[in-house]
């Protein structure tokens, strides 16, 4: 591999550089890109580094109670942001278990959005949270709803000549649940994000209508469980009612075998973890596994027996990838 690295000092210059040719790639923290370079899966002639664009970093509260997060904000900065903790609890939960501290210290939100790998933690949170991704290109700035951004394996709706400049995230209540098959800080084999509008829970648990559910890492893109969302609108907010709605909806999902897990196992994981996430959000706020709803980071890097393959649901080849 052979390339040059350019460090523009304005967004305009950065956009001009990436629009110039197809062999140019953006590098933010590079935690994803460097692997692709090392494996020979990418051979750019030029990398455009965002290091000289500090104005792209930072978290700011918005008038609707949500957040505007600069694309160059590191995941560590987000993890430790009081605004994120208060306004976007599902995002914070996902950050706490995303990769490891060395990755979070370097990786940036814009890269996590643009990378487009299916097995990432943040996409389902952004989809369930109805985030809008702000991208800037030669024609100016536009916003892409997160639900329309992720198109498939390393494929997004972001143009080749566009740069992610910010993420707008409305406020939410909610949770993120993550399943890993090897170590606790591994890539997700399943990510489940469930969110509601904060106003829905001002006087007790939120209504079952209006809950948003997104799953990631079991297909080539994150997706909403819209049939289940619709069914929940007419479902009594009880453990039995939620469990029945989940069972019915998940049985109808199109789920395929993956390199890390069979379709049967994935379906089992989705049913279990969507149900538990809904119970946490819609019922008493308790985490069915851990009891303490405000603990934030239940697993502490230790394996949770409920999150790994049990005897009835072995992995595709009975072992790790």
């Amino acid at each position: 591999m052979s390339f040059t690295i350019t460090e523009p000092s304005t967004v305009t210059d950065a956009v001009r550089l990436i629009a110039a040719d197809d062999e140019t790639r953006i590098v933010a923290g590079g935690t994803g890109l460097t692997l692709l370079l090392r494996y020979g899966l990418l051979a750019p002639t030029r990398l455009v580094s965002l290091r000289n664009l500090p104005s792209l970093a930072g978290v700011a509260g918005t008038g609707d109670g949500g957040l505007r997060i600069g694309a160059a904000t590191t995941l560590s900065a987000l993890e430790h942001s009081d605004d994120v903790a208060a306004r976007a609890p599902a995002l914070r939960q996902a950050l706490r278990r995303l990769g490891n501290v060395r990755v979070r210290n370097v990786a940036q939100l814009g890269g996590a959005v643009a990378h487009g790998h299916p097995q990432m933690d943040l996409p389902p949170v952004l989809v369930a949270g109805e985030a809008r991704i702000e991208v800037t290109g030669p024609a100016g700035t536009r916003q892409i709803p997160a639900g329309e951004l992720f198109l498939g394996y390393y494929d997004t709706a972001i143009g080749d000549d566009e740069l992610v400049t910010a993420v707008h995230l409305p406020p939410h209540h909610g949770v993120y649940r993550k399943v890993t098959l090897r170590t606790a800080e591994d890539w997700p084999a399943l990510g489940v994000a469930v969110t509601t509008d904060p106003g829905d829970s001002r006087d007790g648990p939120p209504a079952t209508a209006g809950v948003r559910i997104a799953v990631g890492a079991i297909g080539d893109r994150p997706f909403r469980l819209t049939d289940l969302e619709d069914a929940l609108a007419d479902t009594p907010p009880t453990p039995a009612g939620i469990a029945e709605a989940v069972t019915t909806a998940v049985a109808d999902l199109e789920i395929h075998d993956g390199v890390d897990a069979s379709a049967e196992y994935r379906r089992h994981l989705v049913a279990v973890h969507v149900r538990r996430a809904l119970q946490t959000v819609l019922l008493d706020g308790a985490d069915p596994d851990h009891g303490d709803p405000d603990h934030g980071e239940p697993d502490h890097g230790e394996p949770d027996d409920s999150d790994v393959a049990g005897p009835d649901v072995a992995g595709p080849d009975g072992g790790p990838r």
Binding site: V27, T31, L35, S49, V106, T183
Partner: peptide
């Protein structure tokens, strides 16, 4: 792959995985 931690370096006081950090960054 940035997974195991044996290549840890502190860069401006922050731990990084030096195996997946381009030196020029």
């Amino acid at each position: 792959q940035g997974v195991c931690g044996t290549c840890t370096v502190l860069v401006d006081g922050r731990s990084v995985a030096s195996c997946i950090l381009l030196a020029h960054l």
